[in-house]
Design a protein around this nucleic acid. Structure first.
Lengths: 345, 345
DNA sequence: CTGAAAGCGCTAACAA
DNA sequence: TTGTTAGCGCTTTCAG
């Protein structure tokens, strides 16, 4: 593989000049520049970003840590993050933290000397994030926050969104309301649940703890939990799912159990991923502006990399309840298992 | 940030010794090793992979180029690839080639001096791939092939799968069969369509070219094309979609158009992504062992990196038709638009 | 078993 | 405007 020395020799200039051409240094004379450029294309030279990274201690690499790429929320986020990174001339080192704790991946990313890390998965009390942030390493959290971590944050308005969901269910007249939590240790789950509970209580009701299950933000687990929830004697008439992946699982679980949605069970999700609007689901959910949030996270990180000592910023994006077809008034006096057949397209 | 020199000084050894400890060189005496290790943890030293990469010309970075992360096929592949890369001690530089041509991303990956690239998106006549492969750069293609490129390949058995789909539709008695193509320039689309057409012709029929549309493997486009297809006078009674993402789009489009599936329209997909089995879809489709294919691609790449001069290998994984609920006999004497209402859960 | 020294391919002063 | 030089932080001979 050709090096800048090869180019220099072939072009009859010094290696430094080659470097200057590569970095658009305005000082190189036009004829020299052209000659070097010609040799570069002729020899098919590709500058070595590793060597450049070593001397500049800047890799233009950004770590992106995702909780679970199989959750359709993440591809949507990734798409936007990826596009925005390109805009900033940055490349993505991707980590799916589903298997091992985020700490493991963070270490690998640090070894790789990435310029910064975007975490979309982080426990409320993540030491990793707190340590990194305290060392002034550029970190931004998306859709999560970490206790006591001084770092840039991009979140949706969980409180308002959850309250809207609760009020909607209350208005419809639901009394037995179940909840599918995410990870109890995630700020998102904690915040959404807190606001939801409060709104329900403000409505004079209370969320029955026996109807609250941990779905881990995961399709499979949410599916299991919903099946169980629908099996109990006085099952809920409504289910608030802390993300859309779980809401879709609940929808499928209800269908499998022969429970009609929304007649026998209302379901509300969170995020408004693209699939939520599909004809097959028509999910009532709380919209978060995912694309904007993703973009903002990259911009924030880029600024933080440029000036690590700036004050940290927290961007809160508005949430909005989108009413579609999975919520309705609860059916009167019907507490037993419905006899509805699973339907097909 | 601490360097190996800092460690050396603090431990009272030479920098070379620190390097040896880091690389598990068996020659270092146990007491020295322990002392160095202690200092390393005490100072929170993180070895610099960039510097290491420069000297070893090995980055342990692997580029993964994906056609469109929003296609649910890819998260499934990515999850498995990601997990397997970890097994090999490799990290993933991720590129979503949806926006710009793969060439752009390939160049960035080369600058980054990744050890190899896994392409899951590549046109049949991709110069990028052919050039890379001819230069003995480690490349593996998943679910695609490129004309004249001598590189490792992991594919499903498109011919057998497509034939099974065709035979299934033929057996059910369908005569007017539509097809949703991917990218005409993708080998997968080409191969699947060829085998499908042949099987239909072997059945004494022919696929009507006016019922063949290009869905670009994309949900949105497939949705549009299906709506159009369902609008024509003598619409198809069956639709073969060259991937599941398009099949799901077709399912939703049919629902939106008030066309009952499978009664008024049978739909067959390809891939058997996890969503295909959801109660909401119950999609009849051709299964490809995605996880195994992903794993194989990483293993192949790792071997290729280890020995760039080995003969290239092509791994073909078996396809299997999974019959679920989206296919049935065509309804008799009913060519007009059905009056079925869109259904909900 | 350990240390000294020579780079890996580039950038960035500093000279000329 | 261009060349010379000194590293960036590590691995890897080669000595000892």
């Amino acid at each position: 593989l050709a090096t800048s020395w090869d180019i220099a020799r072939a072009a009859g200039v010094s290696q430094a000049t080659v470097s200057r051409v590569l970095n658009d240094d305005p000082r190189v004379a036009e004829p020299t520049r052209l000659r070097v450029l010609e040799v570069i294309t002729r020899l098919g030279y590709t500058p070595n970003a590793v060597a450049r990274g070593l001397v500049t201690s800047q890799t233009n690499l950004v770590g992106v840590v995702v909780a679970d790429i199989m959750n359709p929320f993440y591809p949507e986020l990734l798409e936007a993050i990826s596009a925005q990174l390109v805009q900033h001339g940055l490349r993505m080192v991707f980590s799916n933290a589903a298997r091992q704790p985020e700490e493991v991946y963070a270490r690998l990313l640090m070894e790789q000397r990435v310029d910064g890390i975007i975490f979309t998965a982080a426990h409320v009390k993540s030491n990793t994030v707190r340590t990194l942030a305290s060392q002034r390493f550029p970190v931004v959290l998306v859709n999560r926050s970490v206790d006591g971590a001084k770092c840039d944050l991009v979140v949706g308005d969980n409180a308002t969104g959850s309250k809207a969901a609760a009020d909607h269910l209350l208005e419809l007249g639901h009394k037995r309301i179940g909840v599918l939590l995410g990870y109890p240790e995630s700020s998102t789950s904690r915040d959404r649940m807190a606001a939801f509970s409060k709104a329900i209580e403000d409505g004079g009701l209370e969320v029955d703890q026996s109807l609250v299950r941990v779905g881990q933000y995961d399709y499979e687990e949410a599916y299991r939990q919903t099946r169980q929830l629908l099996d109990i004697a006085r099952r809920p008439t409504a289910l608030f799912c802390l993300n859309d992946a779980m809401a879709l699982a609940a929808l499928n679980a209800a269908r499998a159990a022969g429970v009609a949605v929304p007649d026998d069970l209302s379901i509300v999700g969170f995020d408004d991923i693209r699939m939520a609007a599909w004809e097959a689901f028509q999910l009532t959910t709380v919209r978060q502006p995912l694309t904007e949030m993703a973009r903002a996270s990259v911009d924030l990180l880029a600024e933080r990399i440029a000036s690590p000592d700036k004050a940290v910023r927290k961007m809160v994006f508005p949430s909005l309840l989108i009413r579609r077809q999975t919520t309705a008034r609860p059916r009167r006096r019907n507490s037993g298992r419905s006899v509805a057949q699973p339907r097909r397209f």
